[in-house]
């Protein structure tokens, strides 16, 4: 069992490096075909990289602290299958806090999931992170108007919640099996 897991793990990381290799090849290809844009492409990627590098170590340590200090029961009570409306509200707030780019949210969602958060709440957390960030709403208001922003915000909240509930129904059964295995 353990050996199998180890095998799976190394297979997984191999896949990651394979994908990275493919992307590097694409990058070289694109740079070769668009020499006039190459410096802009490099600059854009590098800007993202800088953004990531400045927050990512902190976020990883935060996840580490989270997994060591919070109990499974605590997360399950607040974000688990029976957390109900309270769990939904907590997920929206956690997601909407002004924190950083979406790449950071995925490992955080994974940590929450491992501690027993429901799929509904994971979906809400990720979607709120992606499109209900507080500074982002302010920019939207400035460029598209208050009415546009408020209507879109209201509908986004409603539909994200519905989506979370549906996805839970679709794959929630798997999670029971998954948990029993652990």
């Amino acid at each position: 069992m353990k050996e199998e897991m180890m095998k799976n793990k190394s297979k997984n990381s191999k896949k990651g490096f394979l994908f990275l290799g493919i992307v590097i090849l694409i990058m070289i290809f694109v740079l070769f075909l668009n020499p006039d844009k190459s410096s802009l492409i490099m600059k854009t990627s590098f800007d993202y990289f800088k953004q990531m590098a400045m927050v990512f170590p902190a976020i990883l340590i935060l996840m580490g602290l989270f997994s060591v200090w919070t109990s499974k029961e605590f997360v399950m009570n607040h974000l688990g299958d029976s957390s109900g409306i309270k769990g939904i509200v907590v997920s929206f707030i956690l997601g909407a806090l002004p924190t950083g780019p979406i790449f950071i949210a995925f490992p955080m969602a994974q940590a929450l999931r491992k501690k027993g958060a429901s799929y509904t709440n994971i979906v809400i957390f990720l979607s709120a992170w992606a499109c209900i960030k507080i500074p982002q709403e302010l920019i939207e208001m400035q460029f598209l108007g208050v009415k546009f922003m408020l209507v879109r915000l209201g509908m986004t909240i409603i539909f994200i919640t519905i989506m979370g509930l549906i996805i839970e129904k679709l794959i929630g059964g798997d999670s029971l099996k998954e948990r029993n295995r652990i």
């Binding site: 994908f19 600059k43 990627s45 993202y48 990512f56």
Partner: peptide, 25 residues
């Protein structure tokens, strides 16, 4: 907790680097 942080960095680093390059392109 720091060990966990270092381990997860190793696990997701390739995916993140790929994503950053794709975004630039």
């Amino acid at each position: 907790s720091i060990m966990i942080a270092v381990k997860s960095l190793g696990k997701i680093a390739p995916a993140i680097l790929s994503v950053i390059m794709l975004i630039g392109i």
